[in-house]
Amino acid sequence: MLARIQDLGAATLTAIGRIGRSSLFLGRLLAGLPLLVKRPGLVIQQLYVIGVLSLVIISVSGVFVGMVLALQGYYTLVDFGAEQSVGTLVALSLTRELGPVVTALLFGGRAGSALTAEIGLMKATDQLSSMEMMAVDPERRVVAPRLLAGFIAMPLLAAIFILLGVGGGYVVATSMLGIDGGAYWSQMQANVSFSDDIANGVIKSLTFGFVATWIAVFEGYDCKPTSEGVSRATTRTVVHTSLAVLGLDFLLTALMFD
């Protein structure tokens, strides 16, 4: 009995310790960000790995999500004779929810796990400690550029996702469902507001990008420097990113939309 309580206490202390370490880690990284102005090449390199290489999966998912939304929305709306509103449905669902959330989930799986594995392996093979030996701060040289690149890449990826989704919805609505193309766009423009829907979607994607990259780099930096430790850290990245994104999404939605 006492052992159970001890386990619970130990788990709690570990969790609190992780939260504390990750916050301190984030603080050090943010303090190191201004130095990146002198080394933009580091950020560009990471933007390539995090952003450009994620484009394919983001684009393909965006098109298909938009197409499915148009189809499913049509089947429901047609019962009410409101099938002309399918453009509004696609655009609002994408800008408000699906764009930022699905992009962040894919981003966590595609880029976040790679970040964790990369940094974790650097740690396991003592590359990070050898940097320290050479008086190079690995947090500023290795981790900070990745954090900044994730923060920049995520909203851009989400915007591409949303735009391609709206385009995919348009193709399905006009070619398969026989909806007038003009009605698709005009209903959408009449009901999607820039300040409410699109700006809030961008705020969401910025937040998700920040949190997803933070989790990924912290898990990599904090992992046990063994093969098993790296693999566990990679799994944790995907799980924690998904949970954080979905939880934050509810919070942000409750705060921003009235």
Partner: peptide, 19 residues
Amino acid sequence: LFVAAGAAALFALALYVSN
């Protein structure tokens, strides 16, 4: 190209999707 495409997508969203 990636950054330009992302910025263009945001711009297009503002222009064509919203009012």
